[in-house]
Every structure is written in structure tokens, then in C-alpha cells.
Design a binder for these strands. Sequence first.
DNA 1: GGAATTGTTGTATTACATGACAACAATTGT
DNA 2: ACAATTGTTGTCATGTAATACAACAATTCC
Lengths: 71, 71
Amino acid sequence: MNELHLLVTVGANIRRIRTGRNLSQNDLAIMCNFEKASMSRIEAGKTNVTLLTLQKISKALNVNITDLVEQ
Amino acid sequence: MNELHLLVTVGANIRRIRTGRNLSQNDLAIMCNFEKASMSRIEAGKTNVTLLTLQKISKALNVNITDLVEQ
DNA sequence: GGAATTGTTGTATTACATGACAACAATTGT
DNA sequence: ACAATTGTTGTCATGTAATACAACAATTCC
């Protein structure tokens, strides 16, 4: 497992929690004030997301950031 | 508390763990393959660090990323 | 006090995250 | 099959993270 695996894991965590809330990528993106395209790339582990972006997502999903980054 | 508080918290976590290991900023920076100047700014909460940077630091400190981001 | 170590701040370059918009693909529901 | 929704990918502009180097400040130790 390389260091990029982390991004995939975080993306999968976000997707799991989002779908568990019956939200579309677009719904969540709007709550975070960004584009659904960005959410798609984040969930796919294609972007090296920053802490502040993670914080926006965690607030929108009402979870702790630790819930998003845990392996 | 604004959204930037997270960066300060993460920086404080890194500093606490680093000093607990008797490492200088320079020591840790070298282990992470970056400059002590970057470590100083990260610990001060002045940079919106990315996940991969957090991962480098967590590996160098031998802790989980969750240990760095928890409030 | 002086030297060495440690930490901070400034500046410049490069790479990439963010944000926006559009087009297309895949999925879902009828 | 069709339409609507949902997700993916491409491209561009802007901001800033990462990296590097240097100078300075603060701390520690003799």
C-alpha cells in the first residue's frame, strides 16, 4: 500500500457516510460550498485534500474529522 | 472559534508529540523530507496542510493521523 | 557574555488544490 | 426506451501549499 492509499480511504469514508445519509455528491458539495466535480474527485481519492476542505466536509456530514481519516 | 482553529490545534498536537520525543523541528522536518521552516509554520497553524503532508508527519512520529487531527 | 542550537520570518519558484463551467457517462425510475 | 438524476472527466483561472534558501530571533548551554 502506497502513500496515496490514504486519499482513497478518506474518499471511501466520505462516500460511505454521505450515501448513508442519502445525499448525492451534489447535495454534499452544495453544503460545502463547492462543486460536485470536486466532491467526485475527492471521493475517488484523486485530490490531496487540505485540512480546511476536510473540515468543511466533516461539518456538513456532522462527524468528526477523525471519522473521515481513520483507516 | 473560527475554522482556522483546527490548524492551530493540529500544529499544537504535532508540537506536543514532537517535543515528547525530544526532537527538534529540524529533526522532524528532516525525517519528513522538508524544511524546518515548513515545520515551524505548520506547528504555528499558519499553513492549511494537506493529507499527504499530515501522513508524512504521522509516519515520522509513528502515530496515527487521527492522533494529529483530534481536537 | 559568547557559541551553538532551535525556532521564526521573508522571499521566490513550482506544483497543485480550489472553484467554476461544461460535456459526457452511468444510474435510476417510469 | 426515455427522462431525470447522479457521477465523472476535461479545462481554465486563481490562490496557496510545498519546497528551498537565507537571514534573523530566541533559547540553551558552556
